[in-house]
Nucleic acid binder design. Sequence first.
DNA 1: TAAAAAAGTTGAAGTCATTCATCTTTATAG
DNA 2: CTATAAAGATGAATGACTTCAACTTTTTTA
Lengths: 205, 205
Amino acid sequence: MSGLREKQKADRERRILQAAVTKFRADGYRAVRIEDLAEIAEVSVGTVYNYYQTKGDILIACVAMEVEEVLTAGHHIVCNPPRGVSAALLSLIISYYDHSLEYLSKEMWRTAMALAIEAPGTPNGRRYFELDQRLAAQVTDLVIALQDRGEVRRDLDARALGTLMFNNLNQMFLEFVRDDAMTLKALRDQVAAQTRPIASLIAVS
Amino acid sequence: MSGLREKQKADRERRILQAAVTKFRADGYRAVRIEDLAEIAEVSVGTVYNYYQTKGDILIACVAMEVEEVLTAGHHIVCNPPRGVSAALLSLIISYYDHSLEYLSKEMWRTAMALAIEAPGTPNGRRYFELDQRLAAQVTDLVIALQDRGEVRRDLDARALGTLMFNNLNQMFLEFVRDDAMTLKALRDQVAAQTRPIASLIAVS
DNA sequence: TAAAAAAGTTGAAGTCATTCATCTTTATAG
DNA sequence: CTATAAAGATGAATGACTTCAACTTTTTTA
């Protein structure tokens, strides 16, 4: 039976990540020491570093977990978007925003974004950037789906449009997490106000 | 004579900042220890912390110094912009970019941006954000100047247009500093390609 | 000018992320 | 089943930012 070690490894990694998601949210990324996570996960400090290269790495893993779920939810919307360009786009974007704080706090998002900017060449930075790319690709996919359904003008470059819209929603999300006082509802309202004029521009006349 | 202490203080602060600009550029922000700066500036570690709250604070002070110069150079362009919407806008934007690496390295910019995102509520974060605002305002001022000269359509909202253009040039600058291999020329070319179509859209027919 | 007060400097100590040589657990070979 | 090898866990040690109580220098007061 050679599966015991594998099972123990997977279990330890899961426990560390679980401890991180919970503790980072509760106490704030800064305030949590690796020692705290090790204690909760019932491993030693050294073991945490066997599974994650740095403290920031653990945070990026939390973000990745969240974004994977966001992508899965988004996939369903892209496969079967509501009628109307504006409704379809907003449905996807708001799905992103509504999921974004399920496991992560604003502080965690800020820290993750900062890490990705500070060290773009490290595995961390690349991983965050890759998640960004996949989200941008999903927005593009939605635009293509709407073109296929004849709702968005076919003469427009779907990739350029998708990237533009993603950059915009990403920028608005940055403003959202920068301001602890801003509510999800305010974010939703703002993006809705911005999206409707764009939607009418790109919709088939 | 009560000016001695004042003079010594100003001198110490200047020496610390000078040491930081030089050493951060030469060795990289991470690699430089407060102890190193203290030694170069001929003060103790504790004294550095009397003038700057954190290591990041020193970096933001470096950025502020650079941006003040950029704003001064930009002011001249806004007061007397070259003929033509595209030429005027590019003149300002490229002036920003060309000045940006005079004292700061890409790594310093990345780190400063990361700091500002990570801790938006701290004096540091606010200060960085305020510099951003002043740059955005200057772009808006140029748009207004071009409207006054009858080169840009007067029915357009100068503030919205200025903010949009600043966000865009800022985003492109972020991509520039994220990629150590990207040259200033590549950045210039890219922004030129983007700016020309915008310029023709907003110019008076 | 001398003493007292105010302002500022100092560097050792504290904290926390990270590393690494040692030890323990699991898997394999005889 | 025992011995060897491989994999992984451990926590004390390291290094860097930051703090703070004691010490100096400058200014004010008498």
